[in-house]
Design a protein around this nucleic acid. Structure first.
Lengths: 159, 159
DNA sequence: GGAAAATACTTTACACATCAACTATTGTCA
DNA sequence: TGACAATAGTTGATGTGTAAAGTATTTTCC
């Protein structure tokens, strides 16, 4: 049983390390899913990163500092600056400097931002269900468990 | 059992859809792994995308058209142009136009390119083993199976 | 009280990734 | 044959992600 990715990539030799196969499968599958989800978001004028920021702000229900937003996404702080710049220019969020600590900048979602992401509350989960339709519910749960276990171990490596 | 990602993202409400949890876990885990692998590659002056191209060319053993390389990576053709530009400028690959079909451009890995990626043949798999040390061999195999199943279903959606 | 460290954010530079539009070449077929 | 479609690759615009350096503000602590 040589594995499917191997054939897909037209590699000649079998994978020497199963770990490499895991990593490549992880990247490739994430990419394939991401492309389709980004496409849906783009129809509403948003990128994936922008949608994530708006969703986090809506979920929190109150303004959040730049760094707090960055820590909840895949992102590093420097990238957040430009991201919020674009969202602010589009009128979806606004900045406000903190009174107590003038280094901190709070980001707040605007009414226009709330309206925009509300339009995705139906189609986005529907798309996710469709994309993951190949797995049973048990398989989805098992996939989540395995991925969390990988990240748990990665965090241990940091300590 | 509320799930770990949920806590990690400091979300208030439980995930409504398990599919969303799968997608977020997939992105986040791939990102965490990618950051560490990219860091190792960068020590050798390469990015992940560049390393992939070199590895594909070495594995094939002969020059490949741009499009063929792109089809074996996560990449779209337009991005491949700039990527090969940079590799060529670094002296790691070279271009050659096909004789039979003058639209096609073949990319060949140079001796310098082979030397460079040979330096990663040891440390890269070692790093991958270390990063995935949290999973048993059976769990790695199961993770691969589930990810391949997701992609199989995605391909069916295209037909 | 004041120098030094820490923190929050921005700026800059570079490398991807995506899409749309463009050029050059080849294939189709009426 | 000759218009037209298809294909291979490039270019340009926009957005994202990383690292390194810079600025402003606050905290620490002697």
């Amino acid at each position: 049983m040589p594995g499917r990715l191997q054939n897909e990539l037209k590699k000649r030799k079998p994978f020497v390390h199963i770990e490499q196969e895991v990593v490549l499968n992880l990247f490739r599958t994430g990419d394939r899913l991401g492309i389709r989800l980004e496409r849906l978001l783009r129809e509403h004028g948003l990128t994936g990163a922008q949608y994530n920021v708006l969703r986090i702000l809506r979920g929190e229900g109150q303004p959040l500092p730049m760094q707090e937003i960055a820590s909840r996404t895949i992102q590093v702080v420097p990238g957040m600056t430009g991201l919020v710049d674009r969202l602010e220019k589009a009128g979806l969020v606004c900045r406000a400097r903190s009174e107590s600590d003038r280094r901190v900048i709070y980001v707040r979602i605007t009414a226009a931002g709330l309206t925009l992401i509300a339009q995705l509350d139906e189609p986005l989960p529907a798309m996710e269900r469709k994309l993951l339709g190949g797995l049973t519910r048990d398989e989805k749960a098992e996939l989540i468990r395995l991925l969390e276990k990988v990240r748990d171990h990665l965090e241990q490596l940091d300590e």
